[in-house]
Design a protein around this nucleic acid. Structure first.
Length: 804
RNA sequence: GCUGAUGUGGCGGAAUGGCAGACGCCGGAGACUUAAAAUCUCCUGUCCAUUGGGGCGUGCGGGUUCGAAUCCCGCCAUCAGCACCA
C-alpha cells in the first residue's frame, strides 16, 4: 500500500485552472492545417444573481465533447461570451441609478469567475460581449444590410404591448397572453415599429431544416412555428359589386360555404359604411374586440361572438346562392386575407358559430353526422351535394375545384405561413441604437457605415416614459442631428434593438473577434463554419434559433458568409428542477447555488453529478446527496493510487473490462448518454476494487476516459503517476480482440421462463446450438423429462427450449 | 383541442425484441476505531417458502411472438410547446 497525498479539490482545481490559462491549453489554433471542430453553447445573459445550476449542464456536456475532440486531433474552437443587453440589467439601473454598463461589467466579471471555477475549456481570448461598441458596430452593420435589402421597414401596426415593461414585444415573446419576461399583462396597441421581414424567408427557413441534423422536437417546433399550409384564394362576389377574397385550405368544401366571416379589423367595414345598415353596432363590436387583451381573447376562445353585416350579401361562386356576411373576432386580420368562407359542416369553429347563430349546415363530405359535430376527416370522406365534385375523394376534389376556379377566373392556388414579421423595435435604453435618421426630405436614411458604431448616449434617466417612448427620445442633443444625405436637420431613431439582435450572429464573431475591418474574415469563416454542434435550451427554439438562422441565411444570400445554415447539429438539454421536483425559482426557495456545491465538493464532483444525474435531454430534480455520491466516486478513484502496482500494461484478467469500458464511454459521450458512460466507469472502478489492485496502464486509461468530465482530478493523478498531461494525449482506442472471450454465460429459458444459467463457448452458432445442447449435461438437467419441440439460441445471450 | 415527449423499486435512473431494476442515492447489517466521522465488505422490488427454490411485477385493458418495459390496437395520467392560423 502506497502513501498518497490527500485529495483536496480546491487546491488542485485552482492549480490546473491557472496552468491552463498560462499555457493557453484550450485556445483554438490559428493554423488551418488540422480538421476543425466548432462546438457551441448559448452564451449566458449575465444577471446579477450569478450562474445557476442550469448553465453548467449544457456547458459541461459540450466541454466533454470539446475535450474529447482535441484529444482526437481536431483544432477546436469552444468559445464563450455574454449576451448582456436586456431588461433585468436596465431595470436594476432604473432602481439603483447605476449605469447599466457598470452593472453589466460587474455581472460579466462575476460570471467569468464562476465559469472559470468550473474548469470549462473555453478559449477566453475570443470572448465577446454584445454591449461592447466594437461588437455592436457589426450588429448595426447587419441591420443596415437588412434595411438596404428592403427587409427592415417601419410600420404603424398593432403590437403586443407589455403594460409592465412599457415596451413592445415580438409575438414569440408573448407566452400565454402575458409577457415572457415579467409576466405582465399584454395588450394590443398601435405603434410605429421597426419590423424585419422574416416572412420573406419562411420557405428558406423551412427547407433549411432538411439540410441540418436537429433533434426531432426542435425541427417539429420550428416547422409548426413557420406553419406552412397549402390551399386556395377564392373570390366571392358581393352585392355591392365588389369581390371579397378568402383563403381556404379546404376548397373542396366550397359547395358547403353557407356564410362568410370577416375579421373586426377588416377594411371592408369602413369602405362600405354607406351601405351598411348597422354600422353603429359593428363599430361597437370592433371596439370591444380591440380592447380585449390577448389573454382575454384566449380565455374567450370557446364562446364565439359575432354580428351580421346588414346591407351586404355575398354569392357562393359554386352554388350561386346568396349568403350572409358576418363579423367575428374568431377570424384574424393577420392571417390569410382576414376573411373566410364558413363551412360549418366541416370546420369545428364554423360549426360552433353556426350552431350559436342558427346558420345553415350543409353536408358536402359524407362520413359523419354534421348535425352532431363537424366532420373534418380528409382521408375517408366522399364528396356529396357538390355538383361536379360528387363522388370524389377530398384530395381529388381539392385538385378538381381549384382547377375549375382558375379556369373561371375565380381563384388561384395559394401557400400561407403562420410566421409573422419580427417586431424589432424596443422602447428601451439598454440595447443597440437603430442606426437610422429620419429626414423630412429623404425619409429614413442609414447612418453611413464609416460612422458606426452609433453609440448609446449618456442619459440620466433609464426608465421608459409613460407614453411609451424610449428614454433616448429625451436626450435631445443626441436625437437632433443632420441628414447624412442632404444635410438638413433631422432626427435619429430613438428605439433600440431587441435582445435577440446581438445573439443572432455572435457565433460569427467568435471566429474572428478582433477584426475591425469586417465582422469576420471570409477565409476564417470558410474554415470554421458551420458550427458543428450547438446545444441549448428548448425555450430558444422559436426565438433565438429561428432568428439567427434567418440572419445567417440573409448574410449567405448577400455573399457575406459561406454556408446556408449556421448550425449543423442542434441538441437540447433537460432542465434541472429543484429537489422537490418543481421548477427552480427564488419564490419557491428551491434554488441551488453552484458556488456552494463547488465549495463543499469541488468542481469535478459538481460536473460529474450534473452529467450523471439522469438522461441528458430530460428534466431532473437536483439532489445534493446524489452530488455527494459523485464525490465519493472521485475519492475512490483517487485512492486507487494506493493499490497501483508497477505494471505498465493492462493485465490480461482486466483487458475485457477495460476495453469494454473504453468502447462504452467513447460511444456514450458521442450520443450524450453521459449518465451511462459514468456508470460504466464506476463499474470499472468497482471491479478494480474487487481485484484490490490496478496496473499503471489501467489507471492511465481510466483517468483518460474520465478526463473530459472531471479534468482537474484526472490531470493531478496523471501528474502524480507520471502519465504526462492528459489534455495533450490522444484519446484511448479499444482493442477489438480484447472484447472477444472464449466462453460466455447465457440464460436458459424453458417456454420463455428463466430456469438457469450455463456457460457455453462464445463462438457457438445458431446452427450448431441444437447439437451442442443435446449433449450438454447442465442443459439436459434443466430440461428434465420434458419433450423438446423447438430450440431457440441467441448467441451470447440465451437459449430458450420450447417444450410440449 | 392540436403537436411532441414521458410513465420501471422508497428516490434519480439502466435495459429499445432476449437474464428487468446496471450505476448512484436513501436505508439496514458487519469490519476497523476507546468513540465518532471517513473508509471497506455484505444486504436492500414484492409475496410465499426460507435449505435448493417458487409465484407476482415496468400506468391500465387487449393483441402479435418461442420470448414484450421495448412492437401493434384502445384507454388513463403527467410534462412541455402551440393554440380560433380557416
Amino acid at each position: 500500500m502506497r502513501t498518497i497525498p490527500v485529495y483536496d479539490p480546491s487546491t488542485i482545481e485552482r492549480k490546473w485552472q491557472q496552468y491552463w490559462e498560462e499555457q493557453g491549453t484550450f485556445n483554438a489554433e490559428a493554423s488551418h492545417n488540422k480538421p476543425k471542430f466548432y462546438p457551441l453553447i448559448e452564451f449566458p445573459y449575465p444577471s446579477g444573481m450569478g450562474l445557476h445550476v442550469g448553465h453548467p449542464r449544457s456547458n459541461t456536456a459540450m466541454d466533454i465533447i470539446a475535450r474529447k475532440r482535441r484529444m482526437e486531433g481536431y483544432n477546436v474552437l469552444f468559445p464563450i461570451g455574454y449576451d448582456a443587453f436586456g431588461l433585468p440589467t436596465e431595470n436594476y439601473a432604473i432602481k439603483t441609478g447605476i449605469h447599466p454598463a457598470i452593472v453589466t461589467k460587474q455581472n460579466v466579471d462575476l460570471f467569468r469567475k464562476q465559469l472559470k471555477r468550473l474548469g470549462f475549456s473555453f478559449d477566453y481570448t475570443r470572448e465577446v460581449n454584445t454591449t461592447d461598441p466594437a461588437y455592436y458596430k457589426w450588429t448595426q452593420f447587419i441591420f443596415l444590410k437588412l434595411f438596404e435589402h428592403g427587409l427592415a421597414y417601419k410600420q404603424e401596426m398593432p403590437v403586443n404591448w407589455c403594460t409592465s415593461c412599457k415596451c413592445g414585444l415580438a409575438n414569440e415573446e408573448v407566452v400565454g397572453g402575458v409577457c415572457e419576461r415579467c409576466g405582465g399583462e399584454v395588450v394590443r396597441r398601435v405603434k410605429s415599429q421597426w419590423m424585419l421581414r422574416i416572412t420573406e424567408y419562411a420557405q428558406k427557413l423551412l427547407d433549411g431544416l432538411d439540410e441540418v441534423d436537429f433533434i426531432e422536437k426542435v425541427r417539429v417546433q420550428q416547422q409548426n412555428w413557420i406553419g406552412r399550409s397549402e390551399g386556395a384564394e377564392v373570390d366571392f362576389a358581393l352585392s355591392t359589386g365588389e369581390k371579397l377574397t378568402v383563403y381556404t385550405t379546404r376548397p373542396d368544401t366550397l359547395f358547403g360555404a353557407t356564410y362568410m366571416v370577416i375579421s373586426p379589423e377588416h377594411p371592408l367595414i369602413d369602405t362600405h359604411k354607406a351601405v351598411i345598415g348597422n354600422y353603429q353596432a359593428l363599430s361597437a363590436y370592433r371596439e370591444a374586440a380591440a380592447r380585449k387583451s390577448d389573454f382575454e381573447r384566449t380565455e374567450m376562445n370557446k364562446d364565439k361572438t359575432g354580428i351580421e353585416i346588414d346591407g351586404i350579401r355575398a354569392v357562393n361562386p359554386a352554388t350561386g346562392a346568396q349568403i350572409p356576411v358576418w363579423v367575428s373576432d374568431y377570424v384574424l386580420m393577420g392571417y390569410g386575407t382576414g376573411a373566410i368562407m364558413a363551412v360549418p359542416a366541416h370546420d369545428e369553429r364554423d360549426w360552433a358559430f353556426a350552431k350559436k347563430f342558427g346558420l345553415p349546415i350543409v353536408e358536402v363530405v359524407s362520413g359523419g353526422n354534421v348535425q352532431e359535430a363537424a366532420y373534418t376527416d380528409i382521408q375517408e370522406g366522399i364528396l356529396v351535394n357538390s355538383g361536379l365534385l360528387n363522388g370524389l375523394s377530398v384530395p381529388q376534389a381539392k385538385r378538381t375545384i381549384t382547377d375549375w376556379l382558375v379556369e373561371q377566373g375565380l381563384g388561384h392556388r395559394k401557400t400561407n405561413y403562420k410566421l409573422r414579421d419580427w417586431v424589432f423595435s424596443r422602447q428601451r435604453y439598454w440595447g443597440e441604437p437603430i442606426p437610422l435618421v429620419s429626414c423630412e426630405h429623404c425619409g429614413w436614411v442609414p447612418v453611413p457605415y464609416e460612422q458606426l458604431p452609433l453609440t448609446l448616449p449618456e442619459v440620466k434617466k433609464f426608465a421608459p416614459t409613460d407614453d411609451g417612448e424610449s428614454p433616448l427620445a429625451a436626450c435631445s442633443e443626441w436625437v437632433h442631428t443632420i441628414c447624412p444625405r442632404c444635410g438638413a436637420p433631422a432626427r435619429r431613431e430613438t428605439d433600440t434593438m431587441p435582445q435577440w439582435a446581438g445573439s443572432s450572429w455572435y457565433f460569427l464573431r467568435y471566429i474572428d473577434p478582433h477584426n475591425d475591418k469586417a465582422f469576420a474574415d471570409m477565409e476564417e469563416l470558410s474554415y470554421w463554419l458551420p458550427v458543428d454542434w450547438y446545444n441549448g435550451g428548448m425555450e430558444h427554439t422559436t426565438l433565438h434559433l429561428l432568428y439567427s438562422r434567418f440572419w445567417h441565411r440573409f448574410l449567405y444570400d448577400i455573399g457575406l458568409v459561406p454556408t446556408k445554415e449556421p448550425y449543423a447539429k442542434r441538441t437540447s438539454h433537460g432542465m434541472i428542477l429543484g429537489s422537490n421536483g418543481e421548477k427552480m425559482s427564488k419564490s419557491r426557495g428551491n434554488v441551488v447555488n453552484p458556488d456552494e456545491v463547488v465549495d463543499e465538493l469541488g468542481a469535478d464532483s459538481f460536473r460529474l453529478y450534473e452529467m450523471f444525474m439522469g438522461a441528458f435531454d430530460q428534466a431532473i430534480p437536483w439532489s445534493t446527496d446524489g452530488a455527494r455520491g459523485c464525490r465519493r466516486f472521485l475519492d475512490r478513484v483517487w485512492r486507487l493510487m494506493e493499490m497501483m502496482n508497477d505494471e505498465e500494461g493492462v493485465r490480461p484478467a482486466m483487458a475485457y473490462d477495460l476495453h469494454a469500458c473504453i468502447k462504452k464511454v467513447s460511444e456514450d459521450y458521442e450520443r450524450m448518454k453521459f449518465n451511462t458512460a459514468i456508470a460504466a466507469m464506476m463499474a470499472l472502478v468497482n471491479t478494480l476494487y474487487e481485484a484490490k489492485s490496478v496496473s499503471r496502464g489501467e489507471m492511465k486509461v481510466l483517468v483518460q476516459l474520465m478526463n473530459p468530465v472531471a479534468p482537474h482530478i484526472t490531470e493531478e493523478i496523471a501528474a502524480l503517476c507520471g502519465f504526462g498531461e492528459l489534455a495533450r494525449q490522444p484519446w484511448p482506442a479499444y482493442d477489438e480482440k480484447a472484447l472477444v472471450l472464449e466462453t460466455v454465460e447465457v440464460a436458459v429459458q424453458i417456454n420463455g421462463k428463466l430456469r438457469g444459467r450455463l456457460t457455453v463457448p462464445s463462438d457457438l452458432t445458431r446452427e450448431n446450438a441444437p447439437a451442442y445442447f443435446a449433449g450438454d449435461e447442465g442443459f439436459q438437467r434443466l430440461l428434465g423429462d420434458k419433450q423438446l419441440k423447438k430450440l431457440i439460441y441467441v448467441p451470447g445471450r440465451l437459449v430458450n427450449a420450447v417444450v410440449g
